[in-house]
């Protein structure tokens, strides 16, 4: 099964962190990528710019177009900062994988909806 690991954290991390902290973070993610490679199954992942760079597009209320707003879909104290898509046998296995992922504030594990071919 495919799972999405959503890594949450405070938006201002990149502004408040020291170069040493950033290097350590990179190293941790490299180690996680190596761990995933070791498992053998395909995976992918990206890091995101903070949520104050987000733009949200919603259907407009009168139904004739879209409304563009400045900011994330939901304002939270901690926001999505990056994600991985991984392959796991079941939820227990996915939780085991997520335990290896750098995690300072919390990771949400979501099953990916897969369709027959």
């Amino acid at each position: 099964m495919k799972y999405l690991l959503m890594i949450y954290g405070p938006d201002d991390w990149s502004e408040t962190s020291t170069p040493e902290q950033e290097a350590a973070e990179m190293e941790a993610h490299d180690a996680f990528a190596a761990y995933l490679q070791g498992r053998g199954a395909a995976f992918s992942g990206e890091a995101l710019h903070p949520s104050n760079t987000a733009t949200t597009l919603r259907p407009s209320e009168n139904g004739d177009g879209f409304m563009v707003t400045d900011g994330p879909f939901v304002e939270l104290k901690e926001n999505l900062g990056g994600f991985y898509i991984i392959e796991a046998a079941d939820l227990d296995d996915a939780i085991e994988v997520a335990k290896h992922c750098p995690n300072d504030h919390g990771i949400e594990i979501r099953p990916v909806l897969e369709f027959d071919s």
Partner: peptide, 8 residues
């Protein structure tokens, strides 16, 4: 079922 909880 959806999230793949394995009852073992």
């Amino acid at each position: 079922a959806i999230s793949g909880i394995a009852y073992r």
